[in-house]
């Protein structure tokens, strides 16, 4: 038997450890990916600020966009972050049923968020908001709005798909009190999506 064949590679457990993230290299990889992704969002928001400052007839977003709806969407994402950390805490104690329950709640939060965003976009499009213009003022107001919230929405959709894959593995009993690294890495992504929305909500809707 070869040496490779004798190594006990349980699926989902990484054989190597990083000195920065002793749990796994995967966690460090996710942090590096999120740092790069944060720069994409940072660039979008900085461009939004610059374009808005340069425009003389930028509409007041809180007068045009539905603040109550998006405030509830913010609350929903914060709740889904809580269910995500609760799910991770559950599996760290070996509670597989708890992980599955909290993961399902987190995914549900993401799906409701996306549905509400689709509703919001439909409503705004019906009121004349287009990628190339809008009846409220500067044409770039709607361009930047759809780009920033759309880019974030894509991340939420990606997160829902990612967490669904984790949930499928959880139903197969892949995770345990000694094997939860993949759940933690997925949780990092989901919290990042929540963190970015906090900033998008403030800069695009409130300021």
């Amino acid at each position: 038997m070869t040496q490779a064949a004798t190594v006990d590679h349980t699926l989902g457990v990484e054989p190597a450890e990083s000195p920065l993230t002793p749990e796994s290299w995967g966690k460090l990889g996710m942090w590096l990916f999120l740092a790069g992704d944060a720069m994409s969002f940072g660039g979008l928001l900085a461009a939004y600020g610059a374009i808005r400052y340069a425009s003389g007839d930028w509409p007041q977003p809180s007068h045009v966009l539905g603040i109550q709806l998006t405030a509830f969407m913010t609350f929903l994402l914060i709740c889904s972050s809580v269910t995500m950390v609760k799910g991770l805490a559950a599996i760290q104690k070996g509670d597989q049923a708890g992980l599955r329950r909290f993961l399902m709640l987190t995914i549900l939060g993401g799906v409701i968020f996306l549905s509400m965003q689709a509703f919001e976009w439909t409503h705004l499009i019906e009121r004349g908001m287009r990628l190339q213009g809008n009846p409220f003022g500067a044409s770039l107001f709607s361009t930047t709005f759809f780009c920033a919230t759309g880019f974030h929405g894509c991340h939420v959709f990606g997160g829902v798909v990612y967490l669904t894959c984790i949930l499928v593995q959880a139903f197969r009993g892949r995770y345990s009190a000694t094997n939860w690294n993949s759940v933690e890495i997925a949780a990092l992504y989901w919290h990042f999506v929540d963190l970015v929305w906090i900033l998008v909500f403030t800069f695009v809707y409130l300021v």
Binding site: L20, T21, D194
Partner: peptide, 19 residues
């Protein structure tokens, strides 16, 4: 939630770079 408070200082530096 992302447990950055409990990570190595270098991970925190990675997170601060985009800001």
């Amino acid at each position: 939630y992302m447990h950055l408070k409990f990570e190595a200082r270098t991970v925190g530096m990675i997170a601060v770079v985009p800001l």
